[in-house]
Design a protein around this nucleic acid. Structure first.
Lengths: 135, 135, 135, 135
DNA sequence: GTGGTCTAGACCACA
DNA sequence: GTGGTCTAGACCACT
């Protein structure tokens, strides 16, 4: 067995920013904070912040304009793309985990349907989660 | 922002064992490997292995018989309990994540229903996952 | 026959702290000494001290705030709970021992009633106790 | 703080034998097992067994007759003496412990009176004891 | 053999 | 500073 290592910090920040785009906190065309500001607000090393933008650019989520800063790509579909990408990621992971426990798609839908009020369930779970999934 | 730390090794092993019970690889009443063997097979320190069994005992999943070893509690319902516990954990986490993206329960069920062939999707996702959700 | 082993050090310290709560020396909400200080004052290893707090937290007697220390849970009923818990423990043990000697509840109450002045009896007993009840 | 050490083994065996006299399992005048047999049945070192008899003789509970073995002193009152001695020991200890928690004699009698059915309570307590009083 | 406990000393994340 | 975790190696009691 191999033990899970934490994801690299730059990856976590990349995901955080993409989540902000997906959920509409940041919009296409918006200017992102400077590397230095990003470093401060996330309390990371400026080099790590730079790498974050590098990755976002490679993924065509952001673009850097020399001397002007980094901007979220001004693509009207970007929000939906992000949303889809992350939702797919989460869903795939969820299905994989449940499949690992022996549930097939039918059962999965049934289980999910039982969780009628996500608000309540999420809260209730928060306390127990530590013992359940080891995050 | 807080960065995700890896779960403690002992927790990961605890979860791994509970998963084996949930999926039927290990059965109620089975003898678990000795602390030392567990330490060897997971390549961890015997002390950490002992902690794994202490946690499992505290969670009433296993019971230790002095000088005889550690056994999965011989409770016929244990498998289902584990299954339920882990499924609930995964489901709660999934719902939480999707809710964070702005999806409500209706949409969630719709999305999941679209994933008709988990096999394919899981594979396809495997390669991209790292950049999508930072695990 | 099984010989009595000493209770683990961490258990003894746990009990000592709970006793301090029960008798009002430590109050709900109080900050407990740091692991390292506890280790020094009880002359135990810092790891053992940490275990003490882990047990206290598992028993919902204390709560740890990362980077800030360990605190007695701020529950106004905690003192009474501890008092009750320890008194019950002692009483149960006493009844068990006396029952082992063949005394029933009636006789027990009678015997206890005879000990009119605990001060004197306690002292008188202190010297002989070792040879009487071992441990 | 000093940590409780286990009572010496010979003390524990002495007490066990005195308890057998107190509860009528062994009677005044009875022949006790030979040192060697005692050592076997208690799985202790023969030297330790010899010390047990030495202590019992010093306490005038047993007497050794050269070449004939060790006998419980043939004193008709011995059983009651033992009973009294042990009961007093337990009672004194109990009072001391409860006093340490702040209970006075009045409260003590009240608490003890509440434990109406020792059978039940003892059982119920057995499971919890470890967490309550640490031996 | 088994698990339980303790020590020693180390590194990490949080504040 | 705080607690949390891990390793290394040791001793003990029980089978």
């Amino acid at each position: 067995m191999q033990f899970d290592a934490s994801a690299p910090i730059y990856q976590q920040v990349v995901t955080a920013i993409k989540k902000e785009i997906a959920s509409g906190t940041i919009h296409p065309g918006d200017k992102l904070p400077s590397c230095r500001d990003l470093a401060v607000s996330y309390r990371i090393n400026p080099n790590t912040a730079a790498r974050v933008y590098q990755v976002l650019e490679a993924q065509e989520v952001a673009e850097t304009r020399r001397g002007m800063g980094t901007y979220v790509r001004d693509d009207p579909q970007l929000k939906d793309t992000m949303l889809r990408e992350m939702a797919d990621g989460y869903t795939a992971q969820y299905i994989r985990e449940m499949k690992g426990l022996g549930f097939d798609r039918e059962e999965l839908l049934k289980i999910l349907a039982e969780w009628s009020d996500p608000e309540e369930q999420t809260k209730e779970d928060a306390g127990n989660r530590k013992e359940k999934t080891d995050a």
